[in-house]
Computed example of a mutant assay.
Amino acid sequence: MTTQESPTQGPGTVVVGVVADPVASPVQVARQLEQELPGLLSEQLADRQWRVEVHRERLPPSDMQRFEMMNVAADYKRQRGWDFAVCITDLPLVTDRQPVVADASSSRNVAVVSLPAFGAMALRRRVLGVVAQLIEDLRGETTPEEGSEEHRRSRVAALGGAFRRTTPDQDGIDLRILATRGRLRLLVGMVRDNQPWRLVSGLRGALVGAFAFSAFYLINATLWELAITMAVWQLVAVVFASITVMLTWLIVYHHLWERARNLPAREREQAVLFNASTVLTLAIGLACGYVGLYVLNLIAALIVFTPEVFSQYVGAEYGLGEYLLVALLATSAATVAGAIGSGFESEESVHEAAYSYRERARREAIRRSREAEENDERLDETMREG
């Protein structure tokens, strides 16, 4: 394949290759880059024509000491004649407890962009600005010295105060962009990548079980009386307690909690971060499911409850408020009972509903590594006994 003209020689079209993980967020971001990046680069670097090509590829796991993703980008850049190559991944990257937005190598004209560090707001616009900044820096013969006036002028407006450009003391990486709000932004980005709203459809067994129990609770006269006599703080406590019970059951029964004990400090911090994202993902997903179940129960109550029977337990002058309270308490009780239904879900389906592809791959790699270590220990014990 004929390679494209070098970006530093003569007029022509400069090709930026984007290698994206074949999952929701990276693919969506890559498509936007394909559509909007050429125009933005033409405004900032008007001496050339720009084109973006997108390729989907399952990117390998990587961290700050390994360069598998950059190697993949460099290989595709060479094979396809790209001038620059950018990997888009949902793998969280951290260095010195700071979330990494992007790493770039000017010697190879490749970069890796990590989506979780962008947080949850204006993701595509921010990625567009960061990638444009990376291409501008890579295209230059040298990267401006950190803190210099040229360094400040070269920063595109889209970066604003959300990100900070640095020059790391690390071989193979000439430019690094960090998230200024640190671990909170990274945590929010990880939850976004997990797409907690998918939990509603992923836990069909639990939802069916909760809905089935709702029918029983809705026609329970004792529940009617409790609902209209409980204080507001008691009802709020019941709602939170029901979601907490369901969340705890899912984590314990389906082994969603990652043990951080006896891990090295760096891996322990990572495990804590992933556990926090798991809790938030489940909490948001279960809250969405709770609201959906509540709406269904309210509709059922409005249709099924006969005025003659309902008034005997809640009072003759009942109104919409009483229906809302009864449906709320019935939903809370059914949510707790619905935890039983989640037991019929396979562990794989629960993990798929709760985690992004990258997080599932990471946990699977950890599981295999621990199994290999246990097998090695058993083998050593056998050899010593023999």
Results as ranks from 00 to 15, higher is better:
L175F: 11
E317N: 14
G205C: 09
A231D: 15
A132W: 12
A283I: 01
T335F: 10
L199P: 00
S25D: 09
R181Q: 14
W224A: 02
D21F: 04
D90K: 01
S25T: 04
S311K: 10
L256V: 00
G315P: 08
G10C: 00
V19E: 01
T143G: 07
F305Y: 10
F67H: 11
A300M: 08
Q28M: 10
T3G: 11
S114D: 01
E352I: 05
T306Q: 14
W50V: 07
Y290T: 06
V18Q: 02
P61K: 03
L293A: 08
H255P: 00
L37Y: 14
A241E: 00
A300E: 04
V304D: 10
L159H: 12
I284S: 11
A132V: 06
S369M: 06
M69V: 14
V16W: 09
I340V: 15
K77W: 10
G17A: 10
A327H: 07
Q4G: 15
V314K: 04
A354Q: 03
T278Y: 00
F310M: 04
L296E: 11
T281P: 01
E149R: 13
L325T: 05
S6F: 12
E308T: 10
G386P: 00
A339W: 04
L328D: 02
Q98F: 00
L184F: 11
H254C: 05
E348S: 11
F216M: 14
R66M: 07
R384P: 00
A316F: 13
P38N: 05
I219A: 11
Q35V: 07
E364Q: 15
M246Q: 14
V130N: 06
E347G: 14
